[in-house]
């Protein structure tokens, strides 16, 4: 692993974020809304997480 080029660090980071992006959707909707009205789509924190992960993927792609 140590001998891998530095660019691989970016690929690994992006892989971690993609993996996390998949895991987020395992969390049930009910646990996310926690008593709040489920019709308020903006309250779905899984979507917030997707936006964050998208930003991180862009950052590590630009600075690779």
């Amino acid at each position: 692993m140590i001998d891998l080029p530095v660019a691989w660090a970016n690929y690994i980071s992006m892989g971690i974020f993609i993996f996390l992006g998949c895991l987020v959707w395992i969390v049930p909707k009910k646990a996310i809304f926690a008593g709040q009205p489920e019709t308020d789509r903006w309250r779905d924190l899984r979507i917030w997480a997707m936006i964050l992960i998208g930003l991180q993927l862009t950052i590590y792609w630009i600075f690779s």
């Binding site: 971690i16 924190l45 997480a49 992960i53 991180q56 950052i59 590590y60």
Partner: peptide
């Protein structure tokens, strides 16, 4: 601020 924070913050938030 990025790999050293964001994944952990998402996990902290949801779990």
């Amino acid at each position: 601020e990025w790999i050293g924070a964001i994944p952990a913050m998402i996990i902290a938030s949801l779990i």
